[in-house]
Simulated scan of single mutants.
Amino acid sequence: MALPSRTTLARWAPTALVAGLGAGAIVVLRNVSPYGANSPLPGCPLYALTGLYCPGCGSTRCLYSLVHFDWQGAIAMNPLLVISLPFLLLMLLHGAGVRPRVLEPLMRVLASPMFWLVLLVGYAVLRNLPWMPFAWLAPG
């Protein structure tokens, strides 16, 4: 049996790293609640300093809810993260060389830094607006 080439290992290393970190996060979030008063999981520093929600606010509670199969709770905490997770997985696999031709147009959009900049800044602005339906984007 031949060993994988160095380029193959280098190409799959980020995927393996994310899988390992994801497994560790699942173990932590299965056993530690971010809702507790003395939770060791950190809160958002931007929210603590300014009272404004960043695009990542509620992500820990969102992932906690996902790990516990609470879809409604996950959407309530950070709907963008829930919607983005499958696309982030696709991007990770694309970087590792899994490139179905049918997904190439989507991958061109997802690989654009401008797309993510506009999406995240726009999401941060909208989730801080106090009016409905934008107030639903705020955590909780």
Rank of each mutant, 00 (worst) to 15 (best):
G56W: 02
G43P: 02
L63I: 07
L17W: 12
L52Y: 12
V82C: 08
H68R: 05
C54Q: 03
V102G: 10
P45Y: 05
F87S: 08
R108K: 14
W71G: 09
I83T: 14
C54L: 06
V102W: 14
P86R: 10
R99F: 04
L52N: 05
Y123K: 01
A2P: 14
L89N: 06
A37C: 08
V118G: 09
P133D: 02
L21P: 05
L88H: 06
L29W: 04
A135I: 13
G51S: 02
N38A: 15
L110W: 00
P14T: 06
A138T: 01
L49A: 15
P14I: 04
R99A: 05
V109C: 02
L120F: 10
Y64K: 04
G73T: 05
C62P: 00
R108M: 11
A76G: 11
M132N: 10
V121S: 13
L81Y: 02
V109W: 08
N78V: 01
L88I: 10
Y123F: 13
G56F: 00
N128P: 02
L88G: 11
T50K: 00
Y47M: 14
V109I: 12
G97T: 06
F87K: 06
L129C: 04
W116C: 02
L129F: 09
M107V: 07
L119K: 01
L106F: 02
W12Y: 13
P4I: 09
R11V: 03
L106V: 12
S39P: 04
G24R: 11
L29F: 07
S5N: 12
G51M: 05
G140A: 10
Y47R: 15
M114G: 06
A10Q: 14
A48D: 13
L92G: 00
W131P: 00
W116V: 00
L63R: 01
V32L: 14
R127W: 03
A25P: 01
M77F: 10
S84H: 00
R101S: 15
S112Q: 03
A96H: 11
V98S: 13
M132Q: 13
R101V: 15
L3F: 13
P14E: 08
N31C: 10
D70P: 00
T8A: 15
L106I: 11
G43Q: 07
P86T: 09
R108F: 09
Y123C: 01
N31H: 15
Y35R: 14
I83Y: 06
L46P: 04
N38F: 12
L88K: 07
S33R: 13
P45L: 07
A76F: 04
L46V: 15
L52E: 03
W136H: 12
P113I: 03
T7R: 15
L90Y: 08
L93E: 08
L117W: 08
V28H: 03
A96R: 08
L85D: 09
P40C: 11
P14M: 09
P4E: 10
V121K: 07
L110N: 03
Y64R: 01
I26F: 12
G95I: 05
T60Y: 00
G58I: 00
L137H: 02
S112D: 06
W136L: 15
V27D: 14
H94A: 14
A48L: 14
L120C: 10
V109Y: 04
F87L: 15
R30Q: 14
A16D: 11
F87H: 07
I83D: 06
T60L: 00
M1F: 13
A23S: 11
P79E: 04
Y47K: 13
L93F: 12
E104Y: 11
M1P: 08
G20R: 10
L89K: 04
A2H: 12
V32D: 12
G58V: 01
